[in-house]
Design a protein around this nucleic acid. Sequence first.
DNA 1: TCACTTTTTGACCGATCGGTCCTAAACAGG
DNA 2: CCTGTTTAGGACCGATCGGTCAAAAAGTGA
Lengths: 193, 193
Amino acid sequence: MARPKSFDQDTVLDQAVQLFWERGYEGTSLADLEAHLGLGRQSLYNTFGDKQTLFLKALERYRSHVGERTLAELNALDAGLDAIRAFFTASVESLTAPGQRRACLMANTILERGSQDPDALLRCNSARNGLERAFRRALAQAKTSGELPEGLDVEATATLLVVQTYGLSVLAKSGASAGELHAAVEALFAGLR
Amino acid sequence: MARPKSFDQDTVLDQAVQLFWERGYEGTSLADLEAHLGLGRQSLYNTFGDKQTLFLKALERYRSHVGERTLAELNALDAGLDAIRAFFTASVESLTAPGQRRACLMANTILERGSQDPDALLRCNSARNGLERAFRRALAQAKTSGELPEGLDVEATATLLVVQTYGLSVLAKSGASAGELHAAVEALFAGLR
DNA sequence: TCACTTTTTGACCGATCGGTCCTAAACAGG
DNA sequence: CCTGTTTAGGACCGATCGGTCAAAAAGTGA
């Protein structure tokens, strides 16, 4: 029963995700947000609260969109070793896409904000848990289907795969080629079987 | 034949390294530097140039001190698999030391400054090359001594170890326990042999 | 002691930061 | 058409940013 908002919240939030992803939290000013989101400062504050709150919502959005999409096939019921390999192949491709060397928003946030923003860190860790859980399930599946040896430590290996995921982000941002990273993934899988 | 500086450059530079390491480049203001380094702004500019130049010198110092110290045993002539394992064990301990969750300055810099400071990125990559070279040598040594299988791809595995190094930094900063990370390292080595 | 050179101190600069306030515009319901 | 409520625009706020300037202080060599 009053004037409605002239924009779609989720669309705007997606653009905020892009900005924070490319420039980081400190590197993204309110002026940047106004310019790229196409709305005034007061609208930003009315809709999302202050900068830090907006950032947390952007993190949430990243997790529920970007994250879940890449997790989808890993969470399939019959996901095994192939699904894990597909996950890393797709990750490397995405991380090294031309003009898109922005690593992973979660890894970026952990390093930039980990010491200062416990809420942000909490969301990053929740996202990490989701990934690690998916890895565990796929690893267990691969183990029962005989793709992996009986003695394999599923818990530790899942953590190892998370380490690998974050490490690939850093190396990709530093300019490593897709070939290098694919080879590193191959080396990892050579040890798994 | 004039007034000498009242401080030791390297000592001051070490403190700058600490600050940048803990707070990042953007997160460290000139006021912070003045306060913790104990010298005035003009002295900073006279001695090290502007903030970005100081940062590059701090990166260099980090590499030549922190970096070289951890690389030392990896660069020993007879370094093999044990040396690599010792490197990761020491890394995990250092990364999870209480009150010191600051990850690795190189990884931090790659993610925070990689897109904006090509000079900084260059130095990070040069440090990475040093690490990767040491890994290659130790891996080759381990291969000839029979610790590792003939078919092992030294090049790709060395990259894999760099990926792990960076990944451990991120996970450590996110709050992962030393135990978790040690287990992940174990899982990695289980695959290598 | 006396120049000469450098360091140091601290005030100061414009720009930009995140955030707020106030007013005008725009829509919904009656 | 009004009335009520919310949104939108933009001026404005104090604080802080990196960087500069000028003057004072402190050494050096003669």
